[in-house]
Structures are given as structure tokens and as C-alpha cells.
Amino acid sequence: MTSLTQDTDPIPRAERPAANPPPFPPTWALKVTMAVTGMAFAAFLAFHMAGNLKVYLGAEDFDHYADWLRTLLNPLVPGEVFLWIFRVVLGLSFVAHVGSGAILWYRARKARGPHARKILVNRISARTMIWTGLILGSFVTFHVLELTVGMRPMASDAFVQGSAYANLVHSFSRPAVAFFYGLTMALLAFHLSHGLLSVVNDLGATGRRFRAVWFAIAGIVAVLIVLGNLSIPIAVQTGILT
């Protein structure tokens, strides 16, 4: 207990807000990026799944659909140009989604401090986003190499560029691949449900009715995507598709 003067030892003053901007890129912008790219993926997945179901119409229909995809918007846009635009957009979204996720994950770890919170009651899907995300990411890479690029050993030995139906059936005939695919779809259910539910908050929808409708649609879309996709390897494994 020593008395000091105002100059040498002033009475502490409450700190004021920071004058400099917060770390770049801002967290809110990263969340919006996650939400927008995530929704793009969800929309892509919905169409992808609908297309995949054509497999049940037989090889001819399915291959025709695959060919249509490559020549989409012909003749307005020649050749595979649109397909490539599509691929580039999806690829950039992928990079943005993963990049934002990584930065947010790092910031979250830092902000929780040295005493991690252990007891948590809800949202297993929220806390596992980073892990389901990582697995999904590696699956997507595998999936592209397997069925689009046809790189072995990811692709089946019988891979032939352009024979989408045959490639698919051959690939899923391998039990390990079918199993990995099924597992990924289960994880996708977690990732997609949390992602689609989070979108309303990330994009700032506060209206009660809008949120309720969105939650319903999000749930239905997630379930349909996962069930639709999941049915294909099962159908191959059980011999329904050959």
C-alpha cells in the first residue's frame, strides 16, 4: 500500500475499443462465404442426385444424361465450355469454403483459450463440422478421380471414359468403394443438415415464419439427397443394377 502520484502511477482507466480494424478477412464475411458456397454445393448436390437417379432408367438414358451434361447450353455456348465454367465455379467455391472453414476453425480454437469446454449438450453435428468437412473433402477428390478423371487405382479397372453407367456400376461393385461411399453419405447428412440450418443465421434471416419454412425445406432436401445417393451403391451391391 503505497501512495503514488497521478503522473507516475495513474488510476487505471477502462480500455477503449480498438482503433484498428479486426483481423482480415472479417469473420462475418468468412461465415457468409461459407453459407453461400455451402448453399451452392447443396444445390449442386440436389441436381446431381436427381441426375444420378437416372441410373435406374438404364444405361442408355444415363449415358445420354451424362453426355447432355458435357454439352450443356450447346449451341449457345460451344463444346464443353459451360461444363468448364461450371467446374471452375465449383472448384473456386470449394477452395473458398475450405479456406474460410480453416480460418474460422483456427480463430475459434484461439478464442476459446487454454480451457477447452468439454461438457456440451447439443449439436454434435456443429462441433464435428471440421471433421465431416475434411472427410467429405477427401471423398470429393476421390470421387472426381474415380468417376470423372478415371485415374487408377481410384477408378475401377474397367473404367472407360464416356461410359458413365458402366463406370458407375463397376466402381460400386467394389465393396470397399460402396462402403466408403455409404459412410460418406451418412457424414454428408450431418454436414448438410447443420450447414443448411446454419445458413439462416449466417445470412441473417430473423423472421420466424421464414426460419420455420427454411428448416423444413432444408431437412427434406438433406434427407432426399442422402437417401437418393445412398440407394445407388446399395442397388449395385444387391444386384439390382448391373
Partner: peptide, 14 residues
């Protein structure tokens, strides 16, 4: 005269 409740320092301000 105030006492800093964290550091215990007794200081004055005029």
C-alpha cells in the same frame, strides 16, 4: 481517495 480493488493501491484524484 480510491482503493484499486484489484491491486490494492490507494490513490487520489483531484
Amino acid at each position: 481517495v480510491v482503493r484499486d480493488m484489484v491491486s490494492g493501491k490507494v490513490r487520489a484524484m483531484t
